[in-house]
């Protein structure tokens, strides 16, 4: 279980200005739950994810995974970044084995594990390709495989499909759901897209514009596999949009 308690974070600019990025964030996530963060740009949702990943420290508050407080990056939390983050000097397979090398797992064994995960994202044929030879969607699939190879309890995804085209995006969403249903990871997913949130999440957390607070939490009770065009999905989208719309207007004003 992932538990976020009273998280506050303020940024200090070089001119000495203070920007309150996150204010009093509290959230409990059950194991194997799929949660989406949604909110206007600059609302601090990425900061929240980075704090969970251990890449940034909060000013106050605690985060625990199964009761263990987070001190820094750790193998219990995998992360997929918004930008393409594969190591360009490593082949696809070697990108996936990276974390296993850090764990000093023997070469043969780590390549077996990596190949299994590459199969999971349907890219076995590209094991020996370099990242620059892959399309954007393929790069993100490799990044997902690379994050999963450590077998993390929690998978953090920061708008991973933001840069791919709509068709590929739909396919990637389906593939991600398949992986999630198979592996049953706790999944925290940031998105700008209401469609994406309604299609993927068990719960959707709406953030307010700066300072980032949790405004509302929607439970998406649609049965899986979901139909993107169903009436119920539309109802969910509508209520989510109106909640979000007010925030986006605030952010613009």
């Amino acid at each position: 279980m992932l538990s976020i308690k009273n998280i506050n974070k303020t940024y200090h600019s070089e001119e000495g200005d203070e920007v309150l990025a996150l204010s009093d964030i509290n959230l409990e996530m059950k194991d194997k739950e799929f949660v989406c963060f949604i909110g206007p740009s600059g609302c601090g949702k990425t900061t929240m994810l980075r704090i969970i990943a251990g890449l940034e420290k909060p000013d106050s508050g605690t985060i625990t995974v199964h009761g263990e407080p987070i001190k820094g990056p750790g193998p219990d939390r995998g992360m997929v970044f918004q930008e393409y983050s594969l190591f360009p000097w490593r082949t696809v397979l070697k990108n996936i084995t990276f974390s296993l090398e850090m764990k000093k797992i023997p070469k043969g064994q780590r390549e077996d594990i990596a190949r299994r995960h590459l199969e999971l994202v349907g890219l076995s044929k590209f094991a020996d390709s370099y990242p620059h030879e892959l399309s954007g969607g393929m790069k993100q699939r490799v990044a997902i495989a690379r994050a999963l190879v450590n077998d993390p309890k929690v998978l953090l995804m920061d708008e991973p499909f933001g840069a791919v085209d709509a068709q590929t995006r739909n396919r990637l969403q389906q593939e991600l759901l398949k992986i999630w249903e198979r592996d049953k990871k706790t999944l925290l997913f940031i998105t700008h897209s209401v469609d994406e949130a309604v299609y993927l999440a068990d719960r959707v957390v709406v953030f307010t514009s700066r300072p980032g607070r949790i405004k509302e939490i929607f439970k998406i009770d649609l049965p899986r596999p979901r139909d993107r065009t169903s009436v119920d999905a539309n109802t969910c989208r509508e209520s989510l949009l109106s909640s979000l719309g007010a925030e986006i207007n605030n952010a613009i004003d």
Binding site: P73, F81, E83, S85, F87, A147
Partner: peptide, 29 residues
């Protein structure tokens, strides 16, 4: 790039020497 360093950190490459040797050096070569 910061994202490569952070990817490394998330994947268990946390101390400075490892990051320099495994991420920054290959990038800088």
């Amino acid at each position: 790039p910061r994202v490569l360093v952070e990817s490394g950190k998330v994947l268990g490459c946390v101390n400075n020497i490892d990051i320099i040797y495994r991420i920054a050096l290959p990038f800088a070569l």
